[in-house]
Write a protein that binds this DNA or RNA. Structure first.
Lengths: 201, 201
DNA sequence: CAGCACTTTAATTATCCGGTTAAACCGGAT
DNA sequence: ATCCGGTTTAACCGGATAATTAAAGTGCTG
């Protein structure tokens, strides 16, 4: 595999990611991906034999893009407040860099949970480890007793939802691109404040 | 238009809603909708001339299903805490009755914001009215000063997101259908508690 | 009965799209 | 120069699917 190979493959993957995340698997067209990559359909199939194969490739890529980075922070040895601030900051940044990935991923997961959930399992996101962390913090009286399930869902909800609702926000309230980004930036303080004051003793 | 007409039309709309919300516009098949309704494709086109027309019909229906009911509570003359508890309770109930509507709506909105946002505008959801309510409560010192934008987004995020992530929850943690519903029921207390303690003086 | 709205059946058209193929081109490596 | 992997071009295939049509049937109503 030559240098050119790699770069073409990358060009294709970038194009595919754009089209797939924008239109979903069912809405994406191989022709559109080829156009976006500046190549032709034939070459697309030369690299990736089928739409499914191409999709699988970018889905893995995209999952690694949103999940693991921010989780590291939660497993570090910062104190609890710092962890929350750190997580939210990192997570929002990675979502800002890929604003339509969350909607894409959740939509595809809801269409084919069984097939796609394996991708998550096999990538080192250990839900139980996080829950264990929280239980420990409770035992140490660093935080009030909370249901770890609700805590995690609350945290992720508050970070991710604005991206899922972005079209509505931008269409209904006068949000433009810049205003939306500023809004998310504000949430780097807003979310930790909301979460923390509910659980700090 | 006879009684039979109406009931057939209703049968079609119910079938279409099921298939569309489950698979999205691009994933939905007219044949599948006909099967689900227990009729044939020809009759589908007899009532709704095209897939687009049928989609428009159910999209309007579905929007009215999630949006306006719960908002009433916020505009009533309950005190602020009661409003929040009431809103969350009502909203979660209507989402529980239509668990895959949120994902469907947000996905379609992100594909065709311009075309679909009109549906929202023309249905009496006055965002500014809600913001006004919040500002008034602040002036009256019923609640601490908050950004209305963040407040509203926080509230909706916490209610809606679990439904968007339901496939993940049910695939990753051992949630089954009953556990999920119980989890949502818990959130009728969890969400107002979280929200309120951040803004009550 | 006759008319009318609704419904079915079955066949057909037109389009879209994923995938394939063959032939040629190009540039770098052997 | 020759070979070869990457690339282009253009045409094509086959299947899926939305949409249409014609013809007949059903059942209610006036």
């Amino acid at each position: 595999m030559s240098e050119l190979d790699k770069s073409t493959e990358q060009v294709i993957l970038r194009a595919a990611r754009k089209v797939f995340t924008l239109r979903g698997f069912d809405g994406a067209r191989m022709q559109q991906i080829a156009d976006e990559a500046g190549i032709n359909k034939a070459l697309l199939h030369y690299y990736f034999r089928s739409k499914e194969k191409l999709f699988d490739a970018i889905f893995k890529e995209v999952m690694q893009l949103i999940i693991p980075g921010a989780v590291q922070v939660l497993l570090s040895d910062l104190n609890f407040s710092e962890k929350i601030y750190g997580f939210v900051e990192k997570y929002l940044d990675s979502l800002l860099a890929n604003p339509d990935v969350p909607g894409f991923v959740l939509h595809e997961l809801s269409l084919h949970p069984e097939r796609l959930l394996d991708n998550i399992k096999g990538m080192g996101v250990d839900f139980n480890l996080l829950v264990g962390q929280i239980r420990r913090e409770i035992e140490l009286k660093h935080i009030k007793p909370v249901e770890p399930d609700h805590f995690m869902i609350n945290l992720v909800s508050l970070c991710m939802f604005p991206f899922l609702a972005r079209p509505v926000l931008m269409g209904l309230t006068g949000f433009d691109h810049g205003k939306f980004n500023a809004f998310i930036a504000e949430r780097k303080q807003e979310i930790p404040r909301l979460i923390l004051q509910s659980i700090l003793p």
